[in-house]
Amino acid sequence: MGDGVAKNGAYKYDDGTKYIGDWNRRGLKHGAGLLILVDGTRYDGVFQNGLCSGLGVIVFPDGAKYEGEFMQGWFHGHGVFWRADGMKFEGEFRGGRVWGLGLVTYADGSHGFPRNEGFFQDCRLIRRRRCPDIVQKAQKISMMARAQCY
């Protein structure tokens, strides 16, 4: 008896949270699904044993958005995060934070001066370095996440 998708359906939790998608035999969200929280946050993507894991898109009530890889409920891997004010980070994430190589783009389309590209640790630029390959991979993963939405 594996932990694969056992059924598909919708459920509304007592707090008003809604889930539409796949479930495993243990009753956990598992596979493709859409989770809508009471505050308006929406996650559309892959679940594994109840947590966001794999490719997904999350949109927050203030308009901020992340498209990319998730692991055990966190932004983790490659992706693109847009803040509500239009600033964008394309690159690597670890444990829900900007962590790794990437590029910041401000709402006006600039990257700052000097250019905000390189190695970030806990959302702070530590070392400047060109990393077009990582930015391109983040853009590709973001597009793939958007394409597979529920």
Score class of each variant (00 low, 15 high):
74 W>F: 13
76 H>M: 06
38 V>A: 11
61 P>S: 11
15 D>G: 02
67 E>G: 01
79 G>V: 05
15 D>V: 06
56 G>S: 11
72 Q>P: 00
82 W>H: 14
68 G>K: 01
81 F>W: 04
83 R>G: 08
68 G>S: 03
59 V>S: 14
39 D>A: 05
56 G>Q: 07
50 G>S: 10
22 D>C: 07
49 N>I: 01
81 F>Y: 13
20 I>Q: 15
72 Q>W: 08
85 D>G: 13
25 R>Q: 09
58 I>H: 01
61 P>K: 11
71 M>W: 04
53 S>M: 02
13 Y>W: 14
16 G>H: 09
79 G>R: 01
60 F>K: 10
15 D>Y: 04
60 F>S: 10
13 Y>M: 14
46 V>K: 09
31 G>E: 07
73 G>N: 04
56 G>F: 04
20 I>A: 09
38 V>R: 09
34 L>P: 01
46 V>F: 07
77 G>D: 09
38 V>M: 10
24 N>K: 12
37 L>N: 15
42 R>V: 15
14 D>M: 05
68 G>V: 03
28 L>C: 06
37 L>D: 01
54 G>W: 07
21 G>C: 06
62 D>F: 10
60 F>I: 02
32 A>K: 15
56 G>E: 12
43 Y>Q: 05
70 F>L: 04
25 R>H: 06
68 G>H: 08
75 F>M: 11
53 S>L: 03
13 Y>V: 00
30 H>I: 04
66 Y>P: 08
64 A>R: 07
44 D>N: 12
54 G>H: 10
73 G>P: 01
51 L>P: 00
12 K>E: 15
37 L>M: 08
32 A>G: 06
41 T>G: 02
47 F>I: 00
71 M>A: 09
62 D>G: 05
68 G>A: 04
62 D>R: 07
84 A>P: 05
29 K>V: 00
75 F>N: 12
54 G>S: 03
17 T>E: 15
47 F>D: 13
23 W>Y: 11
51 L>T: 12
39 D>M: 09
46 V>T: 15
69 E>V: 00
48 Q>N: 11
71 M>Q: 08
51 L>N: 10
49 N>V: 04
54 G>D: 12
57 V>K: 07
81 F>M: 11
81 F>L: 12
17 T>N: 03
36 I>R: 13
54 G>N: 05
69 E>T: 03
42 R>L: 05
80 V>K: 10
64 A>F: 05
55 L>S: 04
85 D>W: 02
56 G>M: 08
55 L>G: 01
43 Y>K: 09
52 C>F: 13
55 L>F: 07
32 A>H: 11
61 P>A: 06
37 L>F: 13
17 T>L: 07
74 W>V: 00
38 V>T: 15
20 I>K: 14
70 F>K: 00
24 N>V: 12
80 V>L: 12
48 Q>L: 13
61 P>C: 03
16 G>T: 11
13 Y>K: 01
53 S>K: 00
23 W>K: 09
12 K>V: 14
80 V>P: 09
81 F>K: 06
80 V>I: 14
16 G>R: 02
30 H>G: 09
37 L>I: 00
13 Y>R: 01
26 R>N: 14
68 G>P: 00
74 W>Y: 11
40 G>I: 14
48 Q>W: 03
27 G>M: 10
12 K>A: 14
24 N>E: 05
